[in-house]
Simulated assay, not measured.
Amino acid sequence: MQKFITMGEGYHEIFELQALIEYNHERVRHAIFLDNDKSPATFLLIMKPVEQDLQAIYTIYNGIAIKDGEGKKYQLIKSWCEDKNLSIVEFSTKSPEDFYEREQFYQYLTGILRLNHLILPMT
Rank of each mutant, 00 (worst) to 15 (best):
Q2V: 14
Q2R: 14
Q2Y: 13
K3D: 14
K3H: 14
F4Y: 15
F4Q: 04
I5F: 11
T6F: 02
G8M: 07
G8R: 03
G8W: 02
G10A: 11
H12E: 15
H12A: 14
F15S: 11
L17H: 00
Q18G: 07
L20N: 04
L20P: 03
I21N: 03
Y23T: 14
Y23N: 12
H25E: 07
R27W: 05
V28I: 15
V28M: 08
R29K: 15
H30F: 09
A31T: 05
F33I: 05
F33W: 05
L34N: 01
K38A: 06
S39K: 01
P40G: 06
F43W: 03
L45Y: 00
I46M: 04
I46R: 01
M47D: 08
M47G: 04
K48S: 14
P49D: 11
V50C: 10
E51H: 10
Q52M: 13
D53F: 15
D53C: 10
Q55N: 07
Y58W: 14
Y61N: 02
Y61H: 10
N62A: 07
G63L: 03
G63T: 01
A65S: 13
A65N: 11
I66V: 13
G71V: 06
K72Y: 12
K73C: 07
L76I: 09
I77D: 00
K78D: 08
K78A: 08
S79N: 15
W80H: 06
E82M: 10
E82C: 07
D83N: 14
K84F: 08
K84W: 06
K84H: 13
N85H: 13
N85P: 03
L86V: 09
S87I: 12
V89R: 11
V89A: 12
E90F: 08
F91M: 12
S92V: 13
T93E: 02
K94F: 08
K94P: 01
S95V: 04
S95L: 04
P96W: 04
D98A: 14
F99L: 09
F99N: 05
Y100N: 10
E101L: 12
E103W: 11
E103A: 14
Q104S: 13
F105D: 02
F105G: 02
Y106E: 09
Y106K: 02
L109W: 08
L113P: 02
L113E: 03
L113Y: 07
R114C: 09
R114T: 13
L115C: 11
L115P: 04
L115I: 10
N116T: 09
L118H: 04
I119D: 01
M122L: 15
